[in-house]
Design a binder for these strands. Structure first.
Lengths: 124, 124, 124, 124
DNA sequence: GTGGTCTAGACCACA
DNA sequence: GTGGTCTAGACCACA
């Protein structure tokens, strides 16, 4: 369900929080849905429960998640239901920019970069 | 010359090191070229000199940079001169994968994602 | 500077956060002021550094504190400078209500309760 | 009869226990009086029965309550019957202290604080 | 079963 | 020096 990479330099709890934000924005998890338990996720990704908990707490403060004592974390009611695809694209903007910067520094042509993305999309 | 983002969660020295690696791989900086001084870069990006220094030292250990007493850091002789574009593409692989994961979580269609990248490339 | 009570049932990090909020609201700590370091507070109150850190992080997310890497936590610019005394009183409302409930349950007369508060104020 | 606040950070069972202690100290519930059943209270406050039960058990251990098989919890004989108002005031001491600390941190004058308490007492 | 709090302690990033 | 991240593990509150 989630992809966590301890080597990436980005704190694990932030990776997780960002992915949950995206799946909510994308509608794959909706209001009322329950998230996997802290322990479950911790085991699955061989990570300390507190690390998962930190991500959940962060999203609770943001208002994306709701905690009901003794029960799994739940997705809160969203201010904006059904974001349009254009709105969701905003989330990708920083990553797209980083990608373009990297490609330029590697002197990779636009054509090759686009082809490369197209290939990756086709293969998954 | 370089783009450093203190908010990204990725350590600044790693951002810098990665960008230097890419520009060497891309041929924009070549064997014998000199890098900006630690102080110069530190000032330019409002960052502590030690942070820049750490990136340089990291690349020195990797063998990408050479330090000559009292002179600016220099690009070392590369094992592989003139990487082909295909080889350079490898550097982008992790970022492309992250991008695709993010797009899938946001339920953004392949078509829209490709168009979005195309737009960004065209506009810069 | 702060009063932390591990027995009270209220999480220590929440006690600390609430006290910082109050001192900012009361103007005793102002924009730009630096807070004691995590380690210093932890030592002083015989508490784990992470507990202090948790309070600071909470207030950072709230926007009350700003973190500058490698430097002490700073009070952020306040939306509302110079709250009036009436506005600051709002912070006390829950505590006053609890006090009144407790006094009623103890069958303590209004007169005695007021006298008791007056005495305590006079003696400190 | 009781006021329970799940948001306060103080465990619910401790809130309940403290309130029962106060009402006994204040003489509003006396030796031999029966408390509401666990189920009744749990329903009324939308709380898990085990939470109520934990408060009752705590007070049973303290000797404040007595459990008779199949009957409602009963108030035990009190060592000190008819506490004087001065003695009962002791129960309020911690709360009064917290209130004064909070007021000082908010830079609220003694006069305003007393007036505020007087208002609240008058209005209820 | 659920999540929360806290500790002791290691190590990292940055000034 | 500053704060941040993470682990291993204990214990708590609540369903």
């Amino acid at each position: 369900m989630f992809t966590l990479n301890p080597q990436s330099g980005i704190p694990i709890y932030r990776q997780l929080a960002e992915q949950i934000r995206r799946m909510v924005a994308g509608g794959q998890i909706k209001e009322g849905d329950e998230l996997p338990s802290v322990r479950e996720l911790a085991l699955e990704h061989a990570v300390n429960p507190m690390t998962i908990s930190k991500a959940y707490s962060l999203l609770e403060v943001e208002g994306l998640l709701i905690r009901h004592r003794g029960k799994p974390m739940q997705i809160a009611r969203q201010n904006k239901q059904n974001n349009s695809e254009q709105e969701r694209l905003q989330h990708l903007h920083p990553q797209l920019e980083q990608l373009v910067i990297a490609a330029r520094q590697l002197e990779i042509s636009d054509k090759v970069l686009l082809a490369s993305l197209r290939d990756m999309l086709a293969s998954e």
